[in-house]
Write a protein that binds this DNA or RNA. Structure first.
Length: 408
RNA sequence: GGUGGGGUGACCGAGUGGCUAAUGGUAGCAGACUGUAAAUCUGCCGGGCUCUGCCCUACGUAGGUUCGAAUCCUACCCCCACCA
């Protein structure tokens, strides 16, 4: 297939594939194929907003077993700028991460940077928190930037509203997200078409550096609708009408709404979601949230909590969580999590980790972040093997019981 | 020995008659964090209790003035600087 001649048209399609390996109830185990490799699901994706999973090197992330990590359109646009990254060969070359990547669109910043932005139908004007300059992100611009970044998956530019948003606001965000999805889709298609036209050249005549820079990216839509089931349904149906898609994201959850509400929304969407596309629950979550999501048919997760909590001294354990700064750990020779196989847990005693936080050495932040990432990645691996074995229900029930028995 | 300055809660350090159990900061303790403006933020931090309040003990020590003192007066102890 790669030996001379025009690249077959189906090559692009084959680059993005999702295969279901097993299901148990709504829980699914699958294999997602992306241009930079395969992802076995369910899977947790660490967040590397600025092209780095805070505090951890790509090599360390690789060793956690993470199969993909995220970058952020808004933040990478501000620093170093998408042109810089494109010139360096794209996000993969830039970061040296050779596995799949996904970029978030900046839609979440519409929510998180409220106060620094103004929304209009055209797009969102942000005032940069870095230097105060005004930057406008539109669906088209978000696609342009993500195309330049060159991740395997680009996310649609959406309008995220708070979890407690009243119906009217949730409706507005949901409908705008759909209108913006049309613009994202046609804009992204233009980039794909441009790239595809290159394929009329014989592959053998394309210099290797251009081959490696071959734009290979898919676009995933985001379902919105706040906490209102009917809006969620409408959002999903509207999204599907605009398909087909190689993956579908559920956004606007875990942004302040109660957990049962998030579960209810997932349950409302699950029967309508296509079986043959991965479902990505954005911004989730804590360990228990992963299992609750998996049980409701979610395949992919991302969350900053692993690294943020790690930096702030909270480590996840099978039995709940622990404050690494706590006086209880003083002098302890026990491993952080005796059941964990990460570098932190197989090397350092609790008393040393606590000490690192007390003296405010950056190593402490890194080691606990590393553990938390591994903890979630491993949870995904465990869930997958139990789904394949048909033992997911009982295992996850027991896991959650133990996890909630002490702490959260 | 003389002169001047000073002794405040674990530490540093404000406060110079009542609003002071006593500003701040540090240390200590606890908590929060979910598509990252976060190595951040919040609370507690003399003791006790029947704990939206009450009672003790507290600003070197001992007295005194005053309705009322960490704040004014006296003596003593200690520390620092300079002079002998």
């Amino acid at each position: 297939m790669r030996s001379g001649g025009a690249r077959p048209a189906y090559a692009i399609a084959v680059m993005f594939e999702f295969r279901l390996d097993a299901t148990q109830g709504s829980a699914r185990a699958g294999t997602l194929t992306l241009p930079h490799g395969e992802i076995r699901t369910p899977a947790f994706m660490p967040v590397g907003t600025h092209g780095v999973v805070r505090g951890l090197s790509p090599k360390e992330i690789e060793r956690t077993g993470a199969q993909i990590f995220l970058g952020n359109t808004y933040h990478l646009h501000l620093r170093p700028g998408e042109d810089v990254i494109r010139e360096m060969g794209g996000l993969h070359r830039f970061t040296t991460w050779s596995r799949p990547m996904l970029t978030d669109s900046g839609g979440f910043q519409v929510f998180s940077l409220e106060g620094l932005r103004r929304i209009s139908e055209n797009g969102v004007e942000f005032q940069s928190h870095v230097d105060g300059t005004y930057r406008t992100l539109t669906p088209e611009r978000a696609m342009e930037i993500q195309w330049a970044l060159g991740a395997d998956v680009a996310m649609a530019f959406d309008h995220v509203v708070p979890g407690q948003a009243p119906y009217e606001l949730a409706l507005e965000g949901m409908e705008r997200t759909l209108r913006w999805l049309d613009r994202c889709r046609s804009s992204h298609a233009q980039f794909v078409d441009q790239a595809t036209s290159v394929r009329s050249e014989p592959l053998s005549t394309i210099p290797p550096f251009r081959l490696s820079a071959f734009p290979r990216q898919t676009l995933w839509p985001i379902v919105q609708g706040g906490t209102h089931d009917d809006l969620r349904r409408r959002s999903l149906e509207g999204t599907l009408e605009r398909g087909p898609w190689t993956g579908i994201a559920i956004g606007g959850l875990s942004v302040g709404e109660p957990k049962p509400v998030m579960h209810r929304v997932l349950e409302a969407l699950e029967p309508v979601l296509p079986r043959d596309a991965p479902r990505y629950l954005m911004g989730v979550g804590f360990p228990a949230d992963l299992l609750e999501g998996i049980a409701r048919g979610v395949d992919l997760f991302d969350c900053v909590a692993a690294t943020r909590n790690g930096r702030h001294g909270t480590a996840w354990l099978p039995t709940g969580r622990i404050n690494v700064r706590g006086a209880a750990l003083k002098g302890s020779t026990a491993p952080l999590d005796p059941e964990c196989d990460c570098e932190t847990c197989t090397t350092y005693p609790r008393g040393y980790l606590r000490h690192l936080f007390v003296v405010e050495d950056m190593l402490g932040l890194r080691l606990v972040s590393l553990h938390n990432v591994r903890f979630l990645v491993r949870l995904g691996e465990q869930a997958r093997s139990h789904i394949l074995a048909g033992t997911f229900d009982g295992w996850s029930r027991e896991w959650l019981r133990r996890h909630h028995a002490r702490g959260t």
